[in-house]
Amino acid sequence: MSETLHTMIAWNHLRSIYTYQEIIKGLCKNEKQFEACCVFNNLKERGYAPDRVIYTTMIHGLCEMGWFGRGSCGLR
């Protein structure tokens, strides 16, 4: 998933917030929460504003792994 995102960025393809949501969801489902956190945290740097769907997806992924209470992702 993250390779797909990196390729899209390198080729300067238009990415929608929906694309980021699906990548974050896929990473969380594959137990790659750290990578999902990196993608989530980079959204603002790329000019996107995380919406409630992105936040819900990220929170759900962190809760699935028992990470949410640790504040390990730095959701802001």
Rank of each mutant, 00 (worst) to 15 (best):
residue 47 G to S: 05
residue 22 E to L: 11
residue 49 A to M: 15
residue 27 L to N: 00
residue 47 G to H: 00
residue 38 C to V: 13
residue 32 K to W: 03
residue 36 A to L: 07
residue 19 T to E: 11
residue 33 Q to C: 11
residue 33 Q to K: 10
residue 41 N to E: 02
residue 24 I to Q: 05
residue 20 Y to G: 00
residue 29 K to S: 14
residue 42 N to I: 00
residue 24 I to P: 00
residue 41 N to W: 06
residue 15 R to Y: 00
residue 48 Y to D: 02
residue 36 A to T: 06
residue 41 N to L: 02
residue 25 K to A: 14
residue 38 C to P: 03
residue 21 Q to D: 12
residue 24 I to N: 01
residue 22 E to F: 10
residue 36 A to H: 04
residue 36 A to Y: 05
residue 32 K to S: 10
residue 41 N to C: 03
residue 42 N to M: 01
residue 41 N to S: 06
residue 39 V to P: 01
residue 39 V to D: 04
residue 32 K to V: 05
residue 33 Q to Y: 10
residue 44 K to Y: 07
residue 37 C to R: 01
residue 22 E to D: 09
residue 45 E to K: 12
residue 16 S to G: 07
residue 19 T to V: 09
residue 32 K to E: 12
residue 22 E to A: 09
residue 42 N to D: 12
residue 42 N to P: 01
residue 42 N to S: 11
residue 49 A to H: 14
residue 47 G to C: 03
residue 46 R to D: 09
residue 23 I to G: 06
residue 31 E to Q: 15
residue 15 R to T: 12
residue 43 L to D: 01
residue 27 L to M: 06
residue 40 F to T: 02
residue 27 L to V: 06
residue 28 C to G: 04
residue 31 E to L: 11
residue 24 I to V: 09
residue 27 L to H: 06
residue 15 R to N: 09
residue 31 E to N: 15
residue 40 F to W: 01
residue 35 E to Y: 06
residue 29 K to D: 15
residue 34 F to R: 15
residue 23 I to W: 03
residue 26 G to E: 09
residue 29 K to R: 11
residue 32 K to C: 11
residue 17 I to A: 04
residue 19 T to C: 11
residue 36 A to C: 07
